[in-house]
């Protein structure tokens, strides 16, 4: 089974990021990591591979530095990696990312000499959080897509997945090839071993340029324009209610809520 996992390198999501003087996210000096949901996708893919058989390839669109994210993936289950050099691709929105990825899929399939059976994506990235790229990619490839899955198994030549919903989960079965986007499963991504980490550094990462992709220039013009960015408002200091009795405290709280026209 041929598996592809799409990975984006993002700023460490445990760091609080504000805006710099030019109104852009102040990410200088923030460690770049593989998007958390993509690491869940890779772990799920690795478990599927271990339970059955197959090869996992990872792909990222980004600068040279994004190879670090791919290397970390090579230490925890992936055995091949490709980077699509972002030079010439301009600003990307989810639509152009989905399109570019679909071209990358075709290119990697050509290089590998095999079609992908399952393409895993994180359900969203922790930096832009659009949650659309997986579905856009499936659309461009003309194959099915199940979003927000938390479990997967092979069934009758296809897959059976659990798709998380507000109330619980749907069990969805589909034929292959297909794209799945992954939510946080019940388990955590594994740690690399000292050995796999060192071995991963020695695996060459395939480079794909804009020219290799054969993208059409009018299809990489973003439809979404970011007008401006603003930081979330600072949390206001709350009101402390500390009356003598519990009853008085409740009465005061109700009064405040009434004044605020909450009800």
């Amino acid at each position: 089974m041929e598996i592809l996992v799409c990975v984006k390198q993002v700023p460490d999501d445990s760091v609080k990021i504000g805006l710099n003087s030019s109104g852009k996210p102040a990410v200088d000096g923030v460690t770049m990591v593989a998007n958390a949901f993509d690491t869940y996708a890779l772990e799920m893919a690795t478990r599927l591979k271990e339970a059955n058989e197959g090869t996992i390839t990872v792909v990222a669109i980004g600068p040279e530095k994004a190879k670090d994210a791919l290397k970390s993936c090579l230490a925890v289950g992936a055995s091949k990696a490709y980077i699509v050099n972002e030079d010439g691709l301009g600003d990307m929105d989810s639509l152009t990312t989905g399109y570019t990825l679909s071209k990358a899929v075709a290119k990697i399939e050509e290089l590998n000499g095999a079609k992908f059976d399952i393409i895993f994506c994180g359900k969203e990235t922790t930096d832009c959080t659009t949650g659309m790229v997986g579905a856009q990619l499936a659309e461009r490839l003309g194959i099915g897509c199940v979003t927000g899955i938390v479990d997967i198994e092979l069934k009758d030549g296809g897959i059976s997945v659990k798709q998380e919903t507000e109330e619980g989960y749907n069990v969805v079965e589909t034929s292959l090839p297909a794209v799945v986007t992954v939510n946080k499963p019940a388990y955590d991504p594994r740690y690399p071993t000292m050995k796999s980490k060192m071995a991963a550094r020695k695996i060459p990462i395939g480079e794909i340029s804009k020219a290799d992709l054969g993208v059409e220039d009018d299809k990489i013009v973003p439809s979404v324009k970011v007008i401006s960015l603003s930081e979330p408002p600072k949390k206001q200091a709350g009101v402390k209610i500390n009356e003598k009795t519990f009853e008085d405290t409740m009465a005061k709280a109700m009064e405040i809520l009434k004044d605020a026209k909450v009800f």
Binding site: K71, Y191, P192, M194, K197, M198, R201
Partner: peptide, 18 residues
């Protein structure tokens, strides 16, 4: 070296989290 830094960040993350 780069390899050492890579291993260090892995062990650091493990020690912090586990």
């Amino acid at each position: 070296d780069e390899e050492g830094k890579d291993l260090l960040s892995t062990v650091k993350e493990f020690c912090e989290k586990e």
